[in-house]
Simulated scan of single mutants.
Amino acid sequence: MMSGLLGRRWKGYGILLFTLALGFFILTRLDRSTLQDSNRDSHKDSEQSDRHSAVKSESGEDSTPGWDLEQENPRLIERISDVILPAADPKSILKISKEIQLGQVGQIEHVVSYFKNKKGGFFLEAGAFDGEYLSNTLYLEAQFNWTGILIEPNREAFKTLITRNRKSKLLNSCLSVHRYSEEVTFDAADVVGGILGDGPDTKGWVPADKRAKYRLRCFPLYSIIMALGNPKIDFMSLDIEGVELAVLETIPWSKVDIETLLIEVEHSNSAAISSILQSHGYRIDHMFGKQDIFYVKY
C-alpha cells in the first residue's frame, strides 16, 4: 500500500518536472528569438546612422571607435559637449602679455563699430591660437563682456590658451571639411598650422622646434554649434589657413543663426566664399585688403 502510494507520488513529481522543463525550454527559445530580432533591428539602425564610420573602419583610414559620425548625430553632439572646456571663472584675472590689439589690420575696430559697442555678445572663433596673439575676440571679451567659444587645433598653443583665463569655452579641435567627424594628420606649424595634405606645403619657413605632426580629431562646425545649444552667434571669426570655403560648405545655414562673419581669404578662393555666403543671405560689409572680408546678414 505504502509502496504504491510512493510510486504514484514520484510519478506525479516526474510529470511536474517534465512540464516545468518543457515550459522553460519554450520560453528560452522565445526570448532568444526576440533578442535576435531586436539585435538585428538595432544593428540596422546603427548601420544607417554610423554608415560612414563603418566604411572608414574597414578601410583602416581611421580606427578611432565611435567618433566618425554624421554632423547631426546626437551621439556626436553629446561627445563634443563632453570635451568642450568651460569658461574661466568670471572673477579670474585675464593673463595676457601685451596690450590688447584690435586685430591684425584693425578688423575688430570695425566689428565694434558695426555692433555699436554692444555688450554681452556671443562669438565663435576658429583659429584662436593662444587666445592673445592676433586674436579677433579678445578685445570684445575684455572690453564689452562678450563670451563664446575659442577653437584651436594646435596642442601647444591650446595649452597656453587655457592659462589665459579667457571667459569663453575652449575646444582643442580642428574643423572638419566634411559633414562628419574625422581624424586627420595635423601639421602644427606655429600660427599657420593646418590639415596635412590640404594643398601645397607653404610652411617651410616655420622653425623645426615650432612644428610637429600628429593625429587630431576634426569636428563639423555645425556639430560644435549644436553642442553649445545652437545659440545666436553675433560674430564668427574663421581663420583656418585655406580650408575656410570647405568648412562653410558643410553648414546647413537654415538651421543656424549667425549675424556676422570675419573670414580670412588670403589662402582661399574669396570669390567662391562670397558666392556661397551671398546665396545664404550675407553681403560684404568691408574688405581688409586681400586678407579678410567682413560679411553681415541682410
Rank of each mutant, 00 (worst) to 15 (best):
P252N: 10
D41A: 12
I80M: 08
A142I: 04
E132K: 04
I263M: 10
S97M: 05
G242Y: 02
R79L: 13
A21F: 14
S279I: 01
M1K: 11
K232N: 11
G204C: 03
L5I: 15
L16N: 03
S59G: 09
Q107M: 15
N154P: 00
Q143N: 10
P231A: 07
M226T: 05
L6T: 08
I240H: 04
I233V: 12
G289H: 07
S223D: 13
L16P: 00
M226F: 04
Y180G: 10
H52K: 11
R211L: 05
E99S: 07
G121P: 02
D257F: 00
E58V: 13
F129Y: 15
R217G: 03
L170K: 05
G4Y: 09
L175G: 04
E241H: 08
L94Y: 03
G60P: 10
A21L: 15
G60E: 10
W253E: 13
E132A: 03
P74G: 12
V111Y: 06
I273R: 12
I26V: 13
S135C: 08
W67T: 08
P153S: 06
L69Y: 07
R8Q: 13
F24D: 00
T137S: 15
Y114V: 10
G148Q: 05
P207L: 11
I195F: 07
L85K: 15
R51G: 14
K232V: 03
I108S: 12
G106E: 06
G197D: 02
E156G: 02
G60H: 05
S270I: 00
I15N: 04
I293R: 09
T160I: 08
A271L: 06
K297G: 01
L76M: 06
P90Y: 00
